[in-house]
Every structure is written in C-alpha cells, then in structure tokens.
C-alpha cells in the first residue's frame, strides 16, 4: 500500500498540471486503509520531501479510504473533519487522487513502452464495450483482443490493474494465448512497480 501511495504522490508532485506545492499542505496527514485497517502517517517536510510510514492512529484519521493497490482501480477515499478548510482539502485530494490519461492515450503509451510487447510480433486490439471505441497497436501476426468497459480500460492502461487479474475477475474479455496474456500482464506489473 505504501508503494502504491508513493507512486501516486510522486506522479502528482512531478506533474506540471497539478501545480501542487507541498507547502500548501499540513505537515502531517494520517490515513487509514479501510481494506486492511492499516494506518499510515504521511509527513511533509517543508517543501522538499514526503515520508510515508506505518503508524497507529489514536485519534480520528484525516483520510479514510480503500487504497488497496490490487483492487484494479485507483484509491477511493474520503477526507474527514480535520480538513474542513476547503483549500487544504482540495490540495490533499489532488495529492492522493491519481490522474488518469484517457484510455486510448494511456494504451498507446503503455504498449509503446512495454519491452515485453513487440509490435512486429503482436497486434493488440482494445475495444471499449461502452461506446465501441477501438485502439489498435502493432502489426504482428499474433492477434490479441482486449474488451472491457471504458473505466476498466483506463485503469488497466494507466497502471492500476493487471491484465490477468481483470480477466479472472470477469472485467475484461481477452482473446490471446497464455503466453501473450502473461507478457502483457508482466508489462502491467512493471508499470505498477515502476515507483519501487
């Protein structure tokens, strides 16, 4: 969970669109994960760095939510009373909520960067079952078809889900060999672990 959060926070801080200044946040944020019931303390050191550590919260936490990195979706959370002031709450929300690129943009970026995926070997067609939108990648003889809802595809290609998990959970239909499912899942794992 810590790694998951670290990745989200790092991306948000590095993003030029977010205009997040650490100095705009309070020095300490306590967070409870509703899935594991584990508590984390996020400490902001002036404007230079953020530390995440497991802790035990004795009072009301600042944030409660599902930060389970393996649920196949970004965290869902609620900011509690201490952050009544909208300015802080908005900044904190920006810090913890991942930015998702549109699924086709994310798919292009993911598939281009994945070293396991050779566009001369595979043709990967992704279909959005909500609107019939299609993304195609590669021109190889091995055809792979990935079908899912808009949101699921966005989560998958933005690095919040693993292909095999989504297939096993019934959220994605996939026509492919075991090898190609494994290779794409491996690329998902690489993307997921990039912050480690």
């Amino acid at each position: 969970m810590e790694y998951h959060l670290a990745r989200i926070i790092r991306r948000n801080i590095e993003s030029p669109d977010q205009r997040l200044r650490l100095a705009d946040l309070l020095g300490t944020i306590s967070l409870r994960d509703s899935a594991s019931l584990r508590d984390l303390c996020i400490t902001i050191d002036d404007s230079t760095s953020i530390y995440i550590a497991e802790t035990r919260i004795t009072s009301v936490p600042d944030v409660i939510g599902n930060f389970d990195p393996f649920r196949g979706a970004p965290p869902q959370f609620q900011i509690l009373d201490r952050w009544r002031r909208p300015f802080f709450a908005k900044k904190l929300s920006k810090l913890l909520r991942p930015q998702l690129a549109p699924w086709k943009t994310a798919a292009e970026q993911f598939l281009t960067q994945a070293e396991q995926i050779d566009p001369r070997e595979m043709t990967i067609e992704s279909y959005c079952t909500d609107d019939g939108d299609v993304h195609a990648f590669g021109e190889g003889p091995q055809r792979i078809q990935i079908r899912g809802r808009h949101r699921t595809l966005a989560h998958l290609f933005n690095g919040y889900a693993l292909l095999i998990d989504e297939i096993l959970k019934g959220r994605i239909e996939c026509l492919a060999t075991m090898r190609n499912i494994a290779l794409i899942t491996d690329a998902c794992t690489d993307q997921w672990l990039e912050a480690l």
């Binding site: 396991q116 693993l162 095999i164 060999t177 075991m178 090898r179 499912i181 494994a182 290779l183 899942t185 491996d186 998902c188 794992t189």
Partner: peptide
C-alpha cells in the same frame, strides 16, 4: 501457476 510472466519452455495454451 505463474500466469503473469513467461518463459519459453512453457506451452502457449498450457
């Protein structure tokens, strides 16, 4: 089974 990564010794469809 290791379904999330691959080695060439394995068969494409198990």
């Amino acid at each position: 089974p290791h379904l999330g990564f691959w080695h060439p010794f394995r068969q494409n469809v198990i």
